[in-house]
Design a protein around this nucleic acid. Structure first.
Lengths: 224, 224
DNA sequence: TAGATTGTTAATCGATTAACAATC
DNA sequence: TAGATTGTTAATCGATTAACAATC
């Protein structure tokens, strides 16, 4: 009832909490305080408590947080307790790499199909999946109740493809194409712009060099 | 002299400006006002002017901004006017996909080498590059003045590999491994955590469904 | 010149951090 | 109970937006 909107800044931090809690859990750590976790994760204890409390009180005064419980709660908040059916659109290098990137499966993101328009690719096997032609996309999406699409097509066809995906009923798009998609409300888009990341890295590299001198010289300063 | 530090929020927006300005430029648009650009990019004109002014006055009152000039200025700010030598560490699916992803080259990011520890991969050709064994990494990095490394090794070896890269003199790492790297000051890291992106997408998908009902039904509402 | 639009200062908004009473 | 640590409110900090004088 009237759940206050959670800011994307908070949401963006959840996967990192989930990862650290997963590690602690595997190490057999049973409980952890926000203070200890803040040291490990290099954030403030205050932020940790604020973040968790957006979703309810997971901790206990004087005790801290139960690692296993918190891990599963955050997983549930992220929707990892449910299975997602996804398709990969674009079977180029990146699409193939992602199809082979098994790790998604164990979080409940099941790759059900891979699509492309290139007749040279259509029919090929990819980790047990046959690459299909885009013509069959609409039928496939409805048939298999696909809710997420991973978009790795060239940027010139990305906008058009996204439109088609939305029409077919896809509700979330992980977009690797280097364009902004314009989707209707209720359809979620998450962009992964690799060249943007590289440019940001380049900026920071240059700024640092400018500020502290370019000398890379061999050996040099041991950093404390 | 005493350049005020630019926030990462601003830096993160620069590649997007660069992209839109590049498009306008290709369309032959000569000048644009912050107002017009704000409509195209769906941000406030105020933010655009603030962002640009962090780096100096690129516009002219009553005229706006010269698209070509601004495009090149932002490129320069991002360090795209200089060439970067980079290596890809890890020649698995993702590493190979990135090596084949030519687009980096045209922005001055030159893939000079691909490395792996797997003897089955070492020696193979990848777009004109031979996959090399990690043993030769240090020599290669120094020889070719590599400043950026793209890290696509499994997470268990990522931290160790990053340490090695830093020792060899690499100044920036684009990290695809699903761990946080702990590098000394002056070494830049940019993380691309694909599963984090997918989890964020999943969160937003679930939140929306919860808030507005799960009904996906065929056909449904035409969005205005 | 008059109109347009920037550069920049001031106001607002939101996110992070600090503080502390509640409570296990 | 005393000590620890949360949940939560208040204070601070930073980023975004609004406003407008400067100026092309």
């Amino acid at each position: 009832m009237g759940e206050k909107e959670i800011s994307q800044a908070v949401v963006a931090r959840l996967p990192r909490y989930f990862r650290y809690l997963g590690e602690l859990r595997e190490q057999g750590v049973e409980r952890i305080s926000s203070g200890d976790l803040s040291v490990i994760m290099n954030v403030t204890a205050s932020q940790i408590r604020q973040d968790f409390n957006h979703f309810g009180g997971f901790g206990q005064q004087g005790y801290g947080y139960n690692v296993d419980f918190l891990y599963h709660e955050i997983g549930r908040i992220l929707g990892l307790d449910e299975e997602h059916q996804l398709v990969i659109i674009g079977a180029g290098n990146l699409g193939q790499a992602l199809a082979n990137y098994m790790n998604f499966e164990k979080r409940g993101f099941l790759v059900k199909g891979v699509f492309d328009v290139n007749p040279k690719l259509v029919g090929r096997q990819l980790r047990g999946l046959e690459i299909m032609h885009m013509d069959g996309l609409e039928h496939f999406i409805k048939m298999h109740k696909i809710d997420i699409a991973v978009l790795t097509v060239p940027k010139d066809s990305a906008i058009e493809t996204a439109k088609l995906l939305v029409l077919c009923g896809v509700k979330a798009i992980l977009n690797f194409a280097h364009v902004d998609l314009n989707v209707p409300e209720g359809v979620q888009v998450e962009n992964v712009h690799l060249s943007d990341s590289l440019m940001k890295l380049s900026y920071n590299l240059h700024r640092y060099e400018e500020a502290f001198g370019k000398k890379t010289s061999g050996g040099g300063g041991k950093e404390g």
